[in-house]
Design a binder for these strands. Structure first.
Lengths: 125, 125
DNA sequence: CTTGCCTCTGACGTCAACGTCAGGTTCTAG
DNA sequence: CTAGAACCTGACGTTGACGTCAGAGGCAAG
């Protein structure tokens, strides 16, 4: 498939796909005229990349992790990287849960007409 | 307290605090000479702001939400905003859990010496 | 009083993940 | 064969949350 089709199937922009290639995240075959060509598994890969971006990983980090995924080689370093990022995401999840619960509490408070102190003026002196 | 102390206590930079004020997220009192002055609750507020940033909210969004928190007024719009962001965070959490589990699966695969297909060349044609 | 640290207001710099535009080529439907 | 869509390679633009630097004033200690 060509780049436009992959973009549609994966739900990203053509520009993003070229960027991924530039960052070494996604290899592409080339036709004689220089057009990029992808196989079907590329769709999943792009979505994995997107999820990793959404999890706050930078291109460089993803570029370090993907070879482990591809080769399924398990050097101590690769396992360490994977685990480290996994744990980072885990912490991020617990943080988000806290923030969500915090918001929930605030929502309950604002829904409850029983108001108790705390105005914006309390933060300055 | 002055800005440096608040920065230390809240674990952010002085620049960040000035930025928050600029964005209307954090009010500050002023001494005669123009120096910013904060009360103790500002520490918590800064940390709340940080958590909201970490949850992917933009300054403008936070600026829209904080008045609801402060005033604890509950107009239909404010409740809608709060709930919308809460739900966004909720979706983000489930996405992150998926990504984490995905990473876990990958880690298991790389730890398991039983290798099964799928090389980097599979993505290009 | 002066030394050194803190603070002030601009204002420009940064970085990442693309968006967008220019100018040209390639593919495909009719 | 031709129009129009899709693709190519640069290369500059954008956005948000600050970093950083310049130049000047404020504040507690010795």
């Amino acid at each position: 498939m060509r780049i436009g089709e992959l973009a549609t199937k994966a739900g990203v922009s053509v520009r993003a796909l070229r960027y991924y290639e530039e960052q070494g995240l996604l290899a592409a075959g080339r036709s004689g005229s220089g057009q990029r060509h992808y196989a079907d598994p590329a769709v999943d890969r792009v979505q994995l990349i997107q999820h990793l971006y959404a999890a706050g990983l930078a291109s460089r980090t993803i570029a370090e992790l993907l070879p482990c995924v591809d080769a399924q080689v398990s050097t101590p370093e690769s396992r360490a990287k994977l685990s480290a990022e996994r744990d980072r995401i885990d912490r991020q999840i617990t943080d988000l849960i806290q923030t969500r619960d915090r918001l929930d509490a605030i929502i309950e408070l604002t829904e409850d007409p029983a108001r108790s102190g705390c105005s914006i003026a309390d933060y300055a002196t």
